[in-house]
Design a protein around this nucleic acid. Structure first.
Lengths: 214, 214
DNA sequence: TTGTGTATATTCACTGGTTAGTATACATAG
DNA sequence: CTATGTATACTAACCAGTGAATATACACAA
């Protein structure tokens, strides 16, 4: 019975995602993915040209939903900039306490495939994190933060750091610690925003200057 | 020709370390480790009861040297507390620019073996990071920082975050960004140290209070 | 000095199982 | 009858771990 096609591909990605995230890339065989998807390995290889291709699809499928979730957590929190960013860490802590949580799929994949720097899955992971960084940067720029890219990267470092540390220690409270560090960094940046040396206030167009990022 | 014994075990760990760090745990077979060490797999299994045992030995061998290096970087930098901590990030950035650098072995192992939470290698990794955290905490406590544990954890989050991010993007400049964030956090904590609300100064025994850590 | 036993250390050859990927044939829809 | 999709059955390599034999160093006895 052919003809499902796109649903089939989707089903394979779903199966692969669950297995790769829970067990790790190299731990999971293509046979296992096929079995979980309820079809033969040969069929899987009709839709994906290799296991590497499948791994890339696994991360690609996580890209948009993941970003959307972060933005939602940010938007839903009512309060100033520090509170909204802290909300991300708070919600993340809540996720991390679920027993099946196993860290960030992008980071774990890049750690496992660190010997293959050009791997398509790693490129997808890097692009994903860059999108998040850029969204943060734009958000901070709107608020007139002096060096929005610098601050965005600092927050991202705390975020990815908390993924790594919480996974290692299985202690989600580090997420809240990261949230507090983020608040401190944002408040410091907000203070810098106000002080234009020389003349008076005039916060308008205080968007981006100072030491460059990358 | 028997009788090397301890040297042999050491040689196996050296071979395992190079391979596991460069290629990943599950990527590397016991045969490869034995071959690199210049002996038979059966001999390897005389010294280690399983591959998991070997993985644990790989991380155990990295524990002390790694901590010693961080402490050396800290001690050698002349300047105040922020400068000394930043020196760690600066030196780390230098390491990370070497082409063979592939992140933090402890973090990468915990990411790869995330499906085996009780694995001995993960316990060793967790203990390693705790030691570093505790050394930082003690160092901050000596300086009269108000909540030294909180600050130590914040710095640790930046450190491990920079491992993860730099590995993903292959851009060591994030290490320096992390160092600047660390400086901001430390300076903020140092300012808090001075202000006792109510009466006058008296910085003595201003060691630890405020919201608890863990 | 010489013979002998024993724990230590090492090797060869093997097993049972797994793995990514494929050759070939078959089924269904349009 | 031809595109698309699926399944059976296979390959060739790899992999963690083991059984059985062996070689060496050293302690001790003669």
């Amino acid at each position: 019975m052919p003809r499902p096609s796109e649903p089939t591909r989707e089903r394979i990605v779903q199966a692969a995602s669950a297995l790769f995230y829970n067990e790790g890339i190299r731990r999971v065989s293509v046979d296992e993915v096929a079995a979980k998807a309820g079809l033969t390995k040969r069929t899987l290889y009709y839709h994906f040209k290799s296991k590497d291709d499948l791994v890339a699809a696994y991360l690609a499928a996580r890209d948009q939903p993941n970003l959307a979730l972060f933005r939602k957590w940010f938007a839903e929190a009512d309060g100033g900039l520090p509170v909204k960013v802290e909300a991300i860490f708070r919600n993340l802590a809540r996720s991390a306490r679920h027993p099946k949580w196993k860290g960030c799929g992008f980071l774990r994949t890049s750690a496992e495939l660190a010997n293959l720097p050009g791997h398509p899955a790693i490129k997808i992971g890097a692009a994903h994190k860059k999108k998040f960084e850029d969204w943060l940067r734009a958000t901070f720029a709107e608020q007139g933060i002096a060096d929005p890219l610098e601050l965005a990267r600092q927050i991202l470092l705390l975020l990815d750091g908390s993924f790594a540390v919480v996974l290692l220690h299985r202690d989600a409270s580090y997420m809240e610690t990261a949230g507090e560090a983020a608040r401190t960094l944002i408040e410091t940046a907000l203070k810098k925003k106000g002080q234009k040396r020389g003349e008076g206030a005039s916060c308008i167009r205080a968007t981006s200057f100072g030491k460059m990022g990358r």
